[in-house]
Simulated scan of single mutants.
Amino acid sequence: MFSLKTKGRGATANAPSDRFNLAGREHDGDWLDAREEIDGPAPPPRTHVTIERPKTILSRNRSPDIPFDRSINAYRGCEHGCIYCFARPTHAFHDLSPGLDFETKLFAKPDAPRLLHAALSKNGYRAAPIAMGTNTDPYQPIESRFRITRDCIAILAETRHPLTITTKSNRVLRDIDLLADMAKDNLVAVAISVTSLDPAVHRTLEPRAPTARKRLDAITALSEAGIPAYVSMSPIIPAITDHEVEHLIEAAAEAGAKAAFFIPLRLPHEVAPLFCAWLDEYYPDRAKKVMNIVRSIRQGLDNDPRFFTRMRGAGPWADLIRTRFAKACRKHGLNRERIALRSDLFCPPVGPQGELF
């Protein structure tokens, strides 16, 4: 694992993966081991986008602890660079590193709107909420260029299809016209992820995501437009962000959030060593403490992938966070109502996709 601490990037290393033939390179004394001494510091990595042409765009899941059965991911990889992102290991499928490659070598799916139109047009299709933002952020910076998310939302709005969005970007406000129209028929809800109110934490934890203030302002704008807005404090990181639970819930309620939820830190596959390297770089004073608490809620492991416990954690520390979180939500009036989206208004698209735009 080579150190790649780079301003504006999350991963401090481009950790290799041995799960899908991505071999690690051992130091063997050749010039690559001393390349910075010979050639000088390497230039900052630039974002590169590859066009992907999938045959389908709706991903299905049968996980019993997830409240949706279908999702759309317009992009692979995410430029926000959140060090904790549980989607990082998916880059290993492409023989790319879940480390820096995940946040610099991205994939975009411009055919997504056409494929979505085709999926909704199939005989026998039954509507249920489609989730966006379940793997990588639908409003990461390259969405401004590709507009894939907006074009998919336009189809869902036209067909009156229910939709949920999870994002940590205020770029969602660009599409407030479509979302407000859908909200009138109870067809959409938006969850804004806010993990920390501390700018110093944010700069290294989520280096290319908008600030917490911008995300809270987005909650306000969505709420004022009649769009149900949640706040997601996911993940809660022990000894780094857990002390902010009460303050963050209060700020979200003041911003207009109707509900809140959280997930304890998850470290699947290659995310664990990447996160540990990040801790050693930015929080060496508490790195062992953080991981000891993580393991205490993950059955003694870095990660517990079992259904139900993976989203909740187990043990005294997890119980304490749940109690504090629930108490803060009650105090500030969150989670009083369950938001149930309508599926009965769905009308399959008619004719070629072009007629929708």
Score class of each variant (00 low, 15 high):
residue 138 P to E: 06
residue 137 D to H: 00
residue 211 T to L: 06
residue 141 P to M: 04
residue 135 N to R: 08
residue 212 A to R: 03
residue 229 A to C: 05
residue 165 I to Y: 02
residue 126 R to A: 09
residue 234 S to L: 09
residue 201 V to R: 14
residue 147 R to D: 14
residue 184 K to E: 11
residue 146 F to T: 13
residue 197 L to W: 02
residue 216 L to I: 02
residue 133 G to M: 01
residue 224 E to K: 13
residue 235 P to S: 12
residue 164 T to Y: 11
residue 197 L to C: 10
residue 196 S to Y: 01
residue 151 D to S: 09
residue 153 I to F: 07
residue 216 L to P: 00
residue 199 P to C: 02
residue 191 A to K: 05
residue 161 H to V: 12
residue 201 V to E: 05
residue 178 L to E: 09
residue 213 R to I: 14
residue 182 M to S: 10
residue 179 L to V: 05
residue 239 A to M: 07
residue 144 S to Q: 14
residue 174 R to N: 10
residue 141 P to I: 04
residue 238 P to T: 07
residue 225 A to L: 06
residue 234 S to A: 13
residue 167 T to P: 01
residue 213 R to F: 01
residue 176 I to N: 04
residue 128 A to C: 15
residue 220 T to A: 12
residue 225 A to K: 08
residue 230 Y to T: 07
residue 191 A to I: 04
residue 167 T to E: 01
residue 173 L to H: 04
residue 203 R to S: 15
residue 159 T to I: 13
residue 134 T to S: 15
residue 225 A to C: 06
residue 204 T to S: 09
residue 215 R to F: 01
residue 180 A to D: 01
residue 203 R to T: 11
residue 230 Y to M: 07
residue 162 P to H: 05
residue 202 H to N: 06
residue 177 D to C: 07
residue 160 R to M: 12
residue 175 D to H: 00
residue 236 I to N: 08
residue 210 P to G: 05
residue 150 R to L: 15
residue 197 L to T: 10
residue 239 A to Q: 08
residue 164 T to M: 15
residue 216 L to K: 01
residue 177 D to Y: 07
residue 161 H to D: 07
residue 172 V to E: 00
residue 201 V to W: 09
residue 176 I to A: 10
residue 194 V to P: 00
residue 184 K to P: 10
residue 221 A to V: 11
residue 196 S to A: 06
residue 134 T to W: 15
residue 142 I to F: 15
residue 239 A to I: 10
residue 203 R to H: 10
residue 237 I to T: 14
